[in-house]
Each structure stands twice: as C-alpha cells, then as structure tokens.
C-alpha cells in the first residue's frame, strides 16, 4: 500500500484524536456520574482509550506484525543482514507487550471494583455516591 502524504496526515490525526476523545469521555463519566456502576464503566472506557493510544504510537506505516512466520523467512538464510532487513519493516513490539499486560490487569481491577460495588449495595441499598456518606461499614 502506498500512502500519499495527505492520506497519512488524515489517518494520523484521526487515530490520535479518537484516542484522546475516548479518554476524555471516559474521564467525564468517571468524574461526573453519580451511579457507582457508571463510574466503573467510565474507567473501563478510559482504559480502552489509553490502549488505542499506546498501540497507535508504536505503528509504522505499511509495517508488518512482529512475527517471523514461515512465509516470511521461507527461502532466506537466517543471517544478520536478512534479519535486519526484515525487522526494518516491522511495527514496534514493546508497546504491544505493554498493552497485553495492561488489558489483563485492567480486567482484574474491574472485577475487584465491581465486587466492592456489590458489597456496598448490599450494605447501603443504594448506589448513589452522595448517599453513601459513612466510610465505616
């Protein structure tokens, strides 16, 4: 795929702007909403935005996935020059490993937060954070 400069600019701005907008929407939901489940939903949306941002920072135009598949290294001796030539066209694997960790940890955080929400509801019979005043339970 050969991108012209114009297309490149459009894609660049659209990915970053989308990630920032999703982060803003998630933070707005987490800060403004009264319902505790809505707060956790806002944090989850925030998480998605950050993941998109990190992956799109590591992208390289018309790059391939960082996998040396059999089709890629088929009739090519594995010398240092060949590997360097192949790896010049690969996207950055470091943010991908980071986001892989972040998604799994985010799920654990969401599960613990939701179990705390269930426990609070069982005690107070409400989820409004204005009515949950006493911190001791």
């Amino acid at each position: 795929m050969n991108f012209t400069l114009f297309d490149l600019k459009i894609i660049e701005y659209s990915f970053f702007i989308t990630a920032i907008l999703v982060i803003m929407i998630g933070l707005y939901g987490a800060l403004v909403k009264k319902s505790l489940i809505k707060v956790v939903i806002g944090l989850s949306v925030f998480d998605s935005g950050i993941n998109l941002l990190l992956i799109s920072v590591g992208y390289i135009t018309s790059g391939t996935a960082p996998i040396f598949s059999p089709a890629l290294v088929k009739d090519m001796p594995l010398t240092l020059e060949n590997i360097k030539k192949l790896s010049a066209g690969m996207v950055d694997p470091v943010p991908q490993a980071l986001v892989l960790t972040a998604i799994v940890i985010g799920f654990g955080v969401t599960a613990v937060a939701l179990s705390l929400v269930i426990r609070l509801y069982r005690h107070h019979q409400t989820l409004n954070i204005d009515e949950i005043k006493n911190l001791k339970w």
Partner: peptide
C-alpha cells in the same frame, strides 16, 4: 494496526 496478539486478548477479555 498490526497487533494480532493484543487484538486476540482484547476480543477475549
């Protein structure tokens, strides 16, 4: 964006 590992994780989780 050429990140199949992350795509698999996100789809499942």
């Amino acid at each position: 964006l050429q990140a199949p590992d992350v795509a698999l994780t996100e789809a499942a989780i």
